[in-house]
Design a protein around this nucleic acid. Structure first.
Lengths: 164, 164
DNA sequence: GGGCATTTACTCGGATATGATGTGTCCGAGTCACGGGGG
DNA sequence: CCCCCGTGACTCGGACACATCATATCCGAGTAAATGCCC
């Protein structure tokens, strides 16, 4: 029970994409270099975000990734589910039906109480994540780091793109 | 991001242990046979519960596992953390400090906003699980299955133990 | 000089190895119950 | 007949293979820009 490490990278990358204009795509190569991450694996995470419709891709020179919609329209839950999957964490294999006390399937109309309890907790978790928008993440980031950091980051990307 | 399968077995086993008197230990062999599960692996889960202090063990003939305290004093969260671990699901490696915009460590006094958001969701999840007691699970189980099921299960265990 | 076809370089996307963790299994340590012998 | 000791069977506990998934990587498909050529 642990989130994949790529999830952290994906969220940070989305936060970076939210800083730059939508028509200013960032290639995976630069994102990886910015955070000092293995580039091909980060690209795989971005690919998942692309499949989920969170980011748009643009191929060829001056291409890269850009947010598919405004940062206010992207929730943390959407990013997490894009990377780690949207299926339930707790799977109920209905083992209560096995064993000497199991009865016919038609008697089990509702999921078992254990699964319901686990799923209720998951619902609370999802609700919290769905309440956080990417724009909120960005605002938190601005509060905790010097203000000129964002401008410095954008300048770094622009310099890298023009030089190449 | 998925719970281990052994978690389901552990919760169901605890629910079974809550049905029988505390001085009526159930061996892992019978628990596995009851649910038709691989016995050694279920034993590993029970071992984790034992380390966590949720169940007591009794060796030798007529031995087995029994709840270490009343079902009203055991929460679902305790069981889940005993099996899947109590550490946080989302780990923050502080990649914000890397890259060209990173500054000295002393400027980062608080965890980054991404980690805080993820952890807040986890806290909501834990809160829900902590609110569910093993006795609640048991009551849910009684509501959804015929009343005589519990008695049948206990009779099955008693028969198995006397026969052996 | 302007427009167009070609080339080129750069990007993403899926197929492919490797390592860690969950899954499944086995054998030894410990303990209680039973049975036999002695008092 | 009762008590004690030795034996045995049954239990848990930790050490040991295997499978699956996350991690890390590579090469081909696609595209926009730049270039050179023709008009």
């Amino acid at each position: 029970m642990k989130h994949t490490e790529g999830l952290e990278w994906a969220i940070h990358s989305c936060s970076l994409l939210a800083m730059v204009p939508t028509d200013f795509p960032l290639p995976a190569r630069l994102l990886a270099e910015f955070y000092d991450l293995p580039e091909p694996y980060l690209a795989k995470q971005m690919q998942k975000l692309s499949v989920a419709g969170i980011v748009e891709t643009r191929r060829g020179p001056q291409g890269g990734y850009a947010l598919a919609r405004q940062a206010t329209e992207i929730t943390l839950l959407q990013i997490v589910e894009a990377i780690d999957g949207a299926e339930r964490h707790f799977v109920c294999t209905e083992i209560r039906r096995c064993g000497p006390t199991g009865v016919e399937d038609r008697f089990y109309t509702r999921p078992c109480g254990i699964a319901r309890s686990m799923w209720r907790a998951e619902a609370a978790w999802r609700k919290e994540l769905a309440a956080v928008k990417l724009s909120d993440i960005q605002k938190l980031g601005e509060d905790e780091t010097p203000a000129e950091q964002a401008a410095k980051a954008i300048a770094w990307f622009q310099g890298k793109l023009q030089k190449g």
